[in-house]
Design a protein around this nucleic acid. Structure first.
Length: 490
RNA sequence: GGUCUCGUGGCCGAGCGGUCAGGCAGUGGUCUGCAAAACCAUCUACAGCGGUUCGAAUCCGCUCGAGACCUCCA
């Protein structure tokens, strides 16, 4: 545990020793979802990645303020209805108030996050609740000379900014390339340059999500909310900003530009980006229409799914890959994850059954050090999990009395596994492992198993097997071992 | 087209200069009235071709292949 936490910083493209701005405090901002549809597997990735970051910092004793926004003023859509607000469009189609749609999908998102055991952020601000802050920020940018008004909208002058600063310091992009490559879109004639981005957009008459501003009735630009809310709750400069790799450009690059002008300093010390989840090698996403929603995973209702996958299977599957790598979805991989996690959980619950010895044949502290080293190396959860699986061998061998562990070893192991599996990785044992808390069920099961045990003692296999088969039809599985019979729900 | 990333055993996925990744599957055992499960052990790798080095999956070059971003996107 003496090795210090290293974080890969997208700004420098290398791992850096993490140093908080304020000792023992962490400011963490992560771009949350746009609530105009159900969350899909891709949304689970940043949520779980930064949930683990959040949990690990808390475990290390930091006081963390974790801000994850809800984008509810919409973004522009690129299909037939260019310039129309996504949320407004959905609302009109379904004849609902925009905020009704927002509420509906926000609730469903929260429900998914609870299922995945993703902790609630400290603050979950909504863009629509921070229009005033965003307008104030636009004013600052205009006053500084980096924003210009055109046709009732306000745009950020990227070219001017780039002369004084560096538009591209995060993404590695160069403005000359942008000039050549940015696609011309309808309605861009208002802008000085195609790559200038909107700070405020004037609403068209049919646009129903709108707010008054000094420039027009309209809505804030796509990148502004994160800058405004990050600044409001975490300060002009804060420690970590996270999000999906696909947000790096232009979203995060533009955040840096806006905040740098409005506040006179770069907003973020460490930028962290999680990689994408792919399906058949292609990014799973809204635009490709190849996404599978989390609810579909949980019930198994999607053509691509062979079965339902529990929230913890999804969580474990994601954590088995490093957050900066792509992970490819497949039924086979998820089933592997499901089986592996089940074995992990079974062994952890077996810890309490180990008989202590006077001497020790296993170095628990070495395992502990390795676990911390893995997490300290840019949150390397796959390595952590590998070490924890290694430790399983010791646990299981001790359970079979093949190696010796002291009382202290067992306690340390128990604490270690609970800390890393449950507290830091945020996994939950879904199996129940026979310890369901319904007293009546326990009573009945013990009663039935007692009868069956008598039958078995009398070698009355017909009765014994009938009980087992009958219970199996109700999803209750009996397992006979030399210590006796245990039961669990399938 | 521009910028960048990646190609690891049957599958998934770490490692990024020298020592075991790990999981799932497979195989061989143990246990068991049978079944299921569990446990132990264990075999296959580093896209191709050159180069640097005492030594390369790991560094460099080229070739082939895949993907991401450049437009909303986690």
């Amino acid at each position: 545990m003496d090795k210090q936490l290293q974080i890969y910083n997208t700004l420098t493209r290398k791992k850096e020793l993490f140093k908080p701005l304020n000792p023992n405090h962490l400011g963490l901002y992560v771009c949350g979802p746009t609530v105009y549809g159900d969350g899909h597997l891709g949304h689970a990735r940043p949520a779980i990645t930064f949930d683990v970051v959040y949990r690990y910092f808390e475990h290390l004793g930091y006081k963390v303020r974790y801000v994850r926004n809800i984008t509810d003023v919409g973004h522009l859509e690129n299909d037939a209805d260019e310039g129309e607000d996504k949320i407004a469009k959905k609302a009109r189609l379904e004849e609902l108030e925009p905020m009704e749609v927002v509420q509906y999908f926000t609730d469903r998102y929260h429900n998914n996050m609870d299922q995945l055991n993703v902790k609630k952020p400290s603050i979950e601000p909504r863009a629509s609740g921070h229009i005033i802050e965003q307008i104030e920020m636009i004013k600052k940018i205009i006053d500084a000379g980096y924003g210009y008004i055109s046709g009732g909208s306000v745009y950020f002058d990227v070219e001017k900014y780039n002369k004084d600063y560096n538009y591209g310091k995060l993404s590695g992009r160069k403005i000359e390339e942008l000039i050549q490559n940015t696609r011309e879109l309808a309605g861009q004639t208002e802008k000085k340059q195609s790559f200038d981005f909107a700070l405020w957009k004037k609403a068209s008459p049919e646009h129903i999500m709108r707010w008054p501003s000094p420039w027009s009735d309209g809505f804030p630009g796509w990148h502004l909310e994160c800058s405004a809310m990050g600044c409001k709750y975490l300060g002009e400069e804060f420690d970590i900003h996270g999000g999906g790799l696909d947000l790096m450009f232009p979203h995060h690059e533009s955040e840096i530009a806006q905040s740098t002008i409005a506040n006179g300093k770069a907003p973020v010390r460490y930028w962290m980006h999680n990689n994408m989840i792919t399906i058949n090698g292609k990014k799973m996403g809204k635009s490709l229409g190849n996404f599978i929603t989390l609810n579909e995973f949980f019930v198994g209702e999607h053509d691509a799914l062979e079965q339902a996958y529990s929230p913890m299977t999804i969580r474990f599957f994601i954590l088995q890959a490093h957050y900066r790598s792509t992970v490819d979805f497949s039924n086979e991989a998820l089933q592997s994850a499901e089986r592996g996690m089940k074995r992990l959980m079974t062994s952890i619950s077996a810890l309490k059954d180990i008989k202590a010895s006077d001497s020790s044949e296993y170095n628990v502290n070495e395992l502990k050090d390795k676990c911390y080293a893995a997490m300290n190396d840019d949150f390397n959860t796959p390595i952590l999990i590998a070490h924890l699986f290694d430790g399983l061998k010791a646990i299981n061998s001790a359970k079979e009395s093949k190696i010796k562990l002291t009382k202290e070893d067992i306690n340390t192991l128990s604490e270690l596994y609970h800390t890393f599996i449950f507290d830091i990785l945020g996994l939950v044992d879904e199996s129940g492992n026979g310890n369901d808390n319904d007293e009546l069920v326990d009573y009945l099961m013990n009663f039935i198993m007692d009868i069956r045990m008598n039958a078995r003692t009398n070698k009355d296999w017909a009765t014994s097997d009938k009980i087992r088969d009958e219970l199996a039809t109700k999803g209750i599985v009996l397992k006979d071992s030399k210590e006796g019979t245990s039961w669990s729900f399938e």
